[in-house]
Computed example of a mutant assay.
Amino acid sequence: MSDLGSPGATAAKTALRDQLVTNRNRRPLLELGEFARAIADHLLTRPEVRRAATVAAYVSIGTEPGTGALLDALLEAGKRVIVPVVLPDLDLDWAVYRGSTSLVPARMGLLEPAGPRLGVDAVAGADAVLVPGLAVAADGTRLGRGGGCYDRALARVPAGTFTCVLLFDDELLPGVPHEEHDRRVVAAATPSGVRVFG
């Protein structure tokens, strides 16, 4: 894969993103539901998630690994769950998730909580941070959709926090193109289980 900061990294990322999004769009809907439940089951048994008082997560859309069951299970377990609100500059503010009925349509086809905003630094107070992505490398380098939202958010998360990307099994790759601003995660949750890096 491309070297850190090399001129070809951006083009390589774009090509890989296109391939990964195409693969996701081909997944059967029934499979998406089964995979969402499996990912939720794996994460809910992780000690880092079980011990967490606050979990930062996200509301999945389209063919992303589904988070609906996971978010509701976290609430049922008594967790405080915060989810992102995308700001005009593509940074992430955060708000408390109070169930799917508390969500309203937002920009870019997203759903977000209707409640008060907590500020961009709220993610720093989460005990576990669950993020979307398109792929992850064996060293934890995450490939996102290209807006940089989650790289900025992950930069605010203290070292040692459980940061985990939710993916499908075939999105665990030996390497991904990366640039200097890209942030690593410590784990990936897939339908097969949770893999911890390093």
Rank of each mutant, 00 (worst) to 15 (best):
A159T: 13
L173D: 02
G133P: 01
L143I: 03
E48M: 08
V186C: 14
N25A: 12
D121G: 14
P105V: 08
H181K: 06
G160F: 01
A124W: 08
G68N: 02
P132S: 04
Y58H: 03
C149P: 00
C149I: 00
E31C: 01
G99C: 04
V123S: 09
V157T: 01
D89M: 07
G109C: 08
G5A: 07
G193R: 13
L29N: 10
A52P: 12
A11N: 05
A57R: 12
A159Y: 09
A155M: 03
R117A: 15
S102I: 09
D182H: 05
D3M: 14
P132R: 01
E34Q: 12
D139E: 06
G119M: 11
G99I: 07
F197L: 12
T63K: 14
L32I: 03
A106Q: 13
A40I: 09
L90I: 10
G140D: 00
G147K: 03
G5Y: 04
V49R: 10
V129T: 00
R195F: 15
G160S: 06
P158A: 10
L172A: 04
A36H: 05
P158H: 08
V165G: 04
L74M: 05
T141Q: 06
A73M: 02
G99H: 06
H42N: 08
S6T: 15
L154S: 02
L71P: 00
R107V: 15
M1W: 12
A15R: 14
T101D: 13
T22N: 08
G175M: 05
L44D: 04
E179C: 10
A15S: 14
H42W: 14
D3V: 15
L87Q: 04
D41C: 04
D127I: 05
D41W: 07
L75A: 15
E48G: 01
A114W: 03
L143N: 03
E76A: 15
A155L: 05
E180Y: 15
A126S: 13
F168H: 15
A12S: 09
L166M: 15
V123W: 08
G5I: 03
L134R: 04
A95C: 04
Y150A: 04
V165M: 04
T10R: 15
D91H: 10
A159Q: 14
V85T: 14
